[in-house]
Structure formats: structure tokens, C-alpha cells
Design a protein around this nucleic acid. Structure first.
Lengths: 139, 139
DNA sequence: CCGGATTTGTACGTATGTATT
DNA sequence: GAATACATACGTACAAATCCG
């Protein structure tokens, strides 16, 4: 990697580099990244710096890391098309650790809250849905 | 803090504790948290562990941290009510570091992409908007 | 306005734990 | 069981931004 300061931080530089490779498909969906030790050796930064870079990508929902297994590029799950209903309101925010466990949301994935007119609230993992608004005149 | 292992990790325990205090209003919106050194001393964990706990809360959009200033509880910004339009599609995901800079999105805040029927794409910071579907029958 | 003190950010290292292969 | 790989936890040193007298 490059210089210690005055530029961007090392871990951001490394995160940018890896993000680019993922987005260009050089690390395709489902494929494994080099191990932390290998990335450390390849880019001449400490393992701690590699981990910070990976944490950035994990927070962006781009990779998945787990104990004992190499980090992998996340495959975009199929998005269910959810038709919105009249009178409903939608907000999106990051879930807490507890909400992630409760609703089965992965790291780096936002939460979508839909408050319906009747008072019911739907909570959805944002990476599994696409909210659509069908045009009634086309029916 | 409690035990080193076999329970939840120290930094998660500390994050849970601080999140509770924020949600109960003991640390109100805009107020400053104790410094990292203070939290370290108070909870008998290393500063590194405190920093990991704060990183969790930052990722959830609950606090804001910056060099030279104490960490603060984020105040929920006003949400503009955005009326949805027929034929549009909405997804939410985490922005990359680059997108955060480009669209002025803070850390821990998702991005909302609205693809309109005409082809135009709106990109919004999720913490500033609420998407509404007005009931046409009520007009 | 200056300079020191304070506070968070970056970078590295070491040791150990735990899950997977 | 052994080897591999990521996770946790502690520590050190220095940089950079802010705060305050």
C-alpha cells in the first residue's frame, strides 16, 4: 500500500481497491477473497489494517465474513417485489444488533419499516425486497 | 464489564449497554457521551474495546464521532415526506464511502434509490425522508 | 491569536479464543 | 486431531482536529 498519511488512510485505500475489484467482477459473487494474512502480505499492511478495510466492505453489504471460513463476496439475493398500499408510509434505517437477530437481517443490510394505514407495521430486510407502485391506469 | 468469553463479547455488551441508555434518553439527542478513556475506565475494558463498541453504535446511526470532539448522540433529522409516484420502484441499501461523500450521507445511514417510470433515478439519504403513498380515495 | 490540553483517528503488534476445513 | 481462518482483547505510538485558557 501507499503512504501512511497525508493521503487517505491505508484501510480506506485498501477498501477502495477491493471494492473496485468486486464491482468489476474480478472477485465474482460467491467467490472467496484472499485470506487476511495474504492481503496483509500482498499489500504490505498489518492484518489489523486489512481487517478494518474488510469491516468497511462488510458495512456496505459487499462481503460476508465468518469465523473459520474465508471472506466471500455476497451474492445479491433475489428481491421480492412488494406492492405498496395506499396510505402506507415507509422509512429505512440500520437495524440494531438485536433487530438483526430478530428479523434475520445480515450485517450491512438496512431495515425497511412500512407502517400501514390500519396500524400494522411490516419490517423487512432491505436486500430482499423492492417496493413497487403499480400504475392503476395501466390495468 | 463482565467476562472475557463464553458470554457475548465485551464490546457487544458495552454497545448494548450504551444503546439502552441512548434509547431510554439517559443520553439524550445531541448530548455528549463520556470520552473513550472515561468509558474504558468506567467499564474496565481497554480503549480499543470501547472503540469497537462505539463503532457498532455508529454503524447503527445512533452516534456521531469525529476527531477532536467528544462523541455525540445523533439527533434524528426532520424527515421530508416524499410522495411516491405511479410506476416507480424503490430499493434501500448501504452506500459506499464514495456515495456517502457524493450524496452527503452520514455514517450508519442507508441510501434509498427510487427508479421512476421515466427512467430518472433519485438517490436519497434514508434518514431524511419518509416515503408516503397518499390514499387517492381520501381526496 | 497562540499554544497546550483534550479527544478521536490511524497503524502496528501480540496473545488467545473459536469455528471451519 | 491438526491446520487454517476469522474474532476478540489488550497494548503502544503517533497524527490530526478541536477545545480552551
Amino acid at each position: 500500500m501507499r503512504r501512511p498519511q497525508r493521503d487517505e488512510s491505508l484501510y480506506h485505500q485498501l477498501a477502495d481497491l477491493l471494492r473496485g475489484r468486486i464491482q468489476r467482477g474480478e472477485y465474482g459473487p460467491g467467490s472467496t477473497l484472499p485470506t487476511e494474512r495474504e492481503l496483509s502480505r500482498l499489500h504490505k499492511v498489518s492484518v489489523a489494517t486489512v481487517r478494518r478495510a474488510l469491516a468497511v466492505l462488510r458495512g456496505e453489504g459487499l462481503i460476508r465474513t465468518a469465523r473459520g471460513e474465508p471472506s466471500t463476496v455476497r451474492t445479491a439475493p433475489h428481491r421480492a417485489e412488494i406492492p405498496a398500499q395506499f396510505g402506507s408510509r415507509l422509512i429505512s434505517r440500520m437495524p440494531s444488533t438485536i433487530e438483526r437477530a430478530e428479523f434475520g437481517i445480515e450485517v450491512g443490510v438496512p431495515l425497511i419499516e412500512i407502517r400501514h394505514a390500519g396500524g400494522r407495521v411490516d419490517v423487512l430486510a432491505a436486500d430482499r425486497v423492492e417496493i413497487i407502485w403499480p400504475d392503476p391506469t395501466s390495468a
